[in-house]
């Protein structure tokens, strides 16, 4: 397998919701197989928009998107690659719509043309992997926030994608669910891009981080993400350095 296979190539992408304030301006981005990239950037800098452009949920005002070496022009082009690129939405309630967990996880595989038996098998395997073995028949809307997040991750993983796009996967989760997601990501041999504000999480799961500014992506060359620990007296009192 070629290690440096280019998965996503975006060139000259511009996008705006309204004419006055463009979100993305002439953005270039390349993503290769095996890349594990973290995006850490302020709110409203266009991170989610970037993901939606990659999935073809939004159309750029100008520029071109190439995925797996194919130019993406029509809805059909995107429909063909969506099962290979899994997007985890910010809000799990958007992603889970079936009455029961098993049906929701099996929805993707069934759409891909898998048989009922295969779909159930894959779904059970995926749920097991995320520590949700006994969740099959639970009702999706009765799950807790953390459980919903894990199940929606399962719905994406069950399509066995080659790339994951995770949009703030840790927001609002407790420590246990956070570590389940971190473990899952590090155990899988898969390329991904993560949007997050959590430096520790990106440190543990990604090999490089980028940031977004003025509608463009910048590699964080000079600044390296690190956690700073030091001790001094009165350290438990709120203070500045």
């Amino acid at each position: 397998m070629v290690k440096n296979q280019k998965i996503i190539k975006m060139s000259g992408i511009s996008f705006s919701y309204s004419e006055e304030s463009p979100i993305l301006k002439d953005l270039d981005f390349e993503f290769f197989k095996g890349d594990k990239i973290g995006i850490i950037a302020p709110n409203g800098s266009g991170k989610t928009t970037l993901f939606h452009l990659m999935m073809g949920l939004l159309k750029p005002t100008s520029g071109s998107v190439e995925i797996f070496g194919k130019p993406m022009e029509t809805e059909q082009d995107f429909a063909d690659i969506r099962h290979r690129v899994g997007l985890l939405f910010q809000d799990a309630d958007d992603q889970l719509f079936c009455p029961t967990v098993l049906e929701d996880v099996a929805f993707g595989p069934l759409n891909m043309g898998k048989s009922k038996k295969e779909a159930i098998e894959i779904s059970k395997r995926t749920l097991d992997f995320l520590g949700l073995s006994d969740f099959e028949n639970r009702i999706t809307f009765k799950l807790s926030g953390g459980e919903k997040k894990l199940v929606s991750l399962a719905t994406v993983l069950s399509m066995e994608p080659e790339v994951l796009l995770l949009d703030e996967p840790l927001t609002g989760l407790d420590t246990k669910t956070r570590s389940t997601i971190t473990r899952a990501l590090t155990e899988m041999n898969i390329s991904y891009i993560i949007i997050s504000h959590n430096i520790e999480f990106l440190e543990a799961t990604t090999s490089k981080t980028v940031t977004m500014r003025d509608g463009k992506i910048y590699a964080d060359q000079q600044v390296h993400v690190h956690i700073h620990d030091h001790a001094h007296v009165h350290g438990n009192v709120p203070h500045k350095h």
Binding site: G86, D94, Q95, N111, A119, M159
Partner: peptide, 22 residues
């Protein structure tokens, strides 16, 4: 807006108007 987002999420999982029952 929720409906839009749900539909998008369904499209990402290859929804083509068919509902499968297990």
């Amino acid at each position: 807006e929720r409906a839009d987002r749900v539909y998008n999420a369904m499209r990402c999982r290859g929804f083509n108007g068919k509902y499968y029952s297990l």
